[in-house]
Simulated assay, not measured.
Amino acid sequence: MAPPPHPPRPVVYTSVFLVLACVAAVSPAATAARFVCNATAPRASTCQALVSYAPPNATTLAAVRALFQLRSHRALLASNGLPITTPPSSPAPSPLRVRLPCLCSGGAGATFQRPTYRIRAGDTLDAIARGVFAGLVTFQDIAAANNVSDPNKIAVGQELWIPVPCSCDPVAGQPVVHFTYVVPPGSSVAGIAQDFATTEETLLAVNRMPDAKSLLAGQVLDVPLRACSSAISNTAIDRNLLVPNGSYILTANNCIMCGCSSYTWQLDCQPTQGISSSFCPAAKCGDMFLGNITTSPASSCEATTCSYAGYTNSTSFSILANLTTSSTCNAAAMSPNTQPAHSSAFRLASTRLRWTELVVYLHVILLCVGLLNHV
């Protein structure tokens, strides 16, 4: 027999109440997110991690930098692949990536000392966690990290450490950059894996999830981002430099800009434009400057590059470089999936963007053909 079209109101109210109760019980906001972090080797217990932050309201890059106490505006630009000339007053994209130091302790990782937040009138720990920091932490996280016994008793002016979960662990034996990611509504494990050039199996294993169906909107997920390999020497100060695709980083006292190539998974480093040459020593490989590439006359598939090899400061500030050889013929086959800096916007408009990009590419090809015909 078909159920009555209008069930009694008490049943409706009870059903809604039970659903809400179940959601509250399993919601990731109800429990603290802990990222496994067992790295204990020298220097491996600390690293640079990335955090995805979706500002609750329209804001500027300068405001985000102040919220997370970032040491430089350029670091925020680099994490998001934004032009180095972008002013601090520019609107902050949402979400955006924030690079923060991560510390492993007791088998788990949290951002080291930063960010902190000073309590204002009307604040609650839950409002700080959900609103100000967009669900990256829970009020339980904040209370535990700051020894707050009663979350309802906080004082205006009190400074709190916001322990955003992070990790420094390698994945499958390879160093990665761990990305703290708040799952948007409508997401799937398969979609997130595709967006960030990883696999469903990796995401499930790293986050200790039983299956893909257990993913919840608002869950704080550990997404390991593959980093580009480099020619940096083991004796260099920045020997642990890890840069994922879709971003760049400034190193060697800001003299060198290194990006992750989306074709070869090799770190591509160049002198930073706009930095005084009198401050930055020249990096050369014989007669070749850093970033210069030559093709072998014997094989059009081999390219020799003057690659960045790190910097030292033992006796004087020096930028190291050496020659590396790579194959260019297999570059297209090696091309990884691009990791979008703002993945939720990418997912919502992915189909439209792909068609737009196809039309643009066709116009460019036709334009090139036309120019060639007139040569």
Rank of each mutant, 00 (worst) to 15 (best):
L323I: 10
S247C: 06
S79W: 02
A212S: 15
N240P: 00
A283P: 08
L242R: 11
C260P: 09
A190D: 15
C329A: 14
N146S: 02
R120V: 10
Q48N: 13
N57G: 03
S299W: 05
L203H: 11
A75H: 08
A41V: 05
D195A: 14
V11T: 06
G81F: 00
C306T: 04
G173F: 12
C166V: 04
A127L: 07
Y263E: 13
P281N: 08
V189D: 05
V26S: 14
G81S: 08
L267K: 08
L67P: 05
H73W: 05
R74S: 13
S105T: 12
S72G: 12
A78Y: 01
V369I: 15
L250N: 11
A49F: 00
S261G: 03
C301W: 06
T272S: 13
A54R: 02
S247A: 14
A32Y: 08
A143D: 08
N146K: 03
P5G: 12
Y117E: 06
S326Q: 13
S307M: 07
D169M: 02
M334I: 04
L61R: 00
T202H: 09
N146F: 00
S188L: 09
L367S: 13
A143L: 09
T180C: 04
N330L: 15
Y263I: 15
R347I: 11
N337V: 14
L61K: 02
P224Y: 01
F179I: 01
A21N: 09
L216M: 15
N57F: 02
V220E: 06
Y248R: 05
N313Q: 14
I237W: 10
D126C: 06
G106V: 07
G286R: 12
L348H: 10
L358Q: 12
P88Y: 04
P170K: 04
V19F: 11
V375G: 11
L70Y: 05
L77V: 00
Q270H: 12
A155Q: 15
L61P: 01
A205S: 14
A321I: 09
N292F: 03
L160G: 06
P5L: 11
S214M: 03
G131Q: 02
I275E: 13
L67M: 00
V369S: 10
V359N: 04
P184C: 02
T202F: 07
R118H: 05
W161P: 00
A32H: 09
T351I: 11
Y181F: 15
W161N: 11
A25T: 10
I275W: 07
F279S: 07
A212L: 09
N322R: 14
V16D: 07
R71Y: 08
A21H: 10
A63E: 11
R71E: 13
L160Y: 04
G310W: 01
T304Q: 14
S149Q: 14
L18A: 07
A321T: 04
T251G: 02
I275R: 15
